[in-house]
Design a binder for these strands. Structure first.
Length: 271
DNA sequence: ATGGTGGATGTTCCA
């Protein structure tokens, strides 16, 4: 294990790992991450594309996938161990979470990768089961971390599908009743984060500055309209805040050929 | 108010 103190962790909703595996070369060239966390891999574990990923040199891989939907994975230059006792959120067995322990400089770092349910279109728990699932998932995750006080050296990343701050969306007023920015979702996400974590990207970027990680495919000229939302997040426990050394939101990735509608987010720690 | 695009799948669901 190289004795370097730097740890770069990238997270990306890749929206089909098999389709977009070639784009990981661009991500690696741009960010040089030590660990890559992926969501919406959309590939069952028995079909995980180890061969297509081998050239990138991430020797340590963990994945939890299923056919067609969801799916999370971690590609790591550091040795890792997968926690086999992570919860089955909402008892759906739907492959939205991985917990690994990284053999990081200075000692182990726990890394959670989440893909929170998108929640459908109608922001009404009674009318829309997908929205109810999303709220329940966030509440359950918050309760799980609340039951584990004093977490240390822990990082949580992923597509959390909620933009919590006013300037995490292009129009706070117009998105208050749009799933991803409703007060109920924001309250749930904030409560979850506050059980154990600090928002590592907003640590660097003031709250009054617009910040997005996702632009809909349905905007033909996404950069001109710039109707984005910050759905992808990186959180760290407070003991790691002094180690935060930088962040990158790889906005240019939204223009990659056949790209995802999400762009990669990376944080760098000096451990 | 509506529909716009994209992936996996299979004539539709999910985002």
């Amino acid at each position: 294990m190289p004795a370097r103190p730097r740890l770069r962790i990238a997270t990306w909703n890749i929206n089909s790992l098999r389709l977009r595996a070639p784009l990981l070369r661009r991500l690696i060239d741009a960010l040089d991450p030590d660990v890559i966390c992926l969501q919406e891999t959309k590939v069952p574990d028995e079909l995980f594309p180890h061969d297509a990923l081998a050239e990138y040199g991430y020797a340590h891989v963990a994945h939890r996938g299923m056919k067609g939907y969801n799916g999370v994975a971690v590609l790591s230059r550091l040795e890792l161990a997968v926690a086999d006792d992570a919860p089955d959120w909402c008892l759906k067995n739907d492959r939205r979470h991985l917990l690994v322990t990284l053999a990081a400089p200075g000692g182990p770092v726990d890394l959670h990768v989440f893909y929170v349910p998108a929640g459908g279109d109608v922001p009404d728990r009674a009318a829309n089961p997908k929205y109810a699932h999303k709220l329940d998932f966030v509440a359950e995750a918050g309760a799980w971390f609340a039951a584990r006080p004093g977490l240390r050296r822990t990082v949580l990343v992923g597509d959390l599908n909620i933009a919590p701050l006013e300037h995490d969306v292009w129009s706070h007023r117009q998105l208050l009743d749009v799933v991803s920015h409703t007060p109920a979702e924001v309250a749930g996400l904030n409560a979850w984060r506050d059980t154990a974590f600090v928002d590592a990207v907003r640590h660097f970027v003031p709250a009054d500055q617009k910040l997005y990680t996702w632009w809909s495919y349905r905007n033909r000229d996404w950069r001109a309209s710039d109707r984005g939302r910050r759905l992808d997040h990186a959180w760290v426990t407070p003991d790691l805040v002094p180690a935060l050394a930088g962040h990158t939101i790889l906005k240019d990735a939204r223009d990659w050929p056949k790209g995802s509608d999400h762009v990669p987010v990376q944080i760098e720690l000096t451990l």
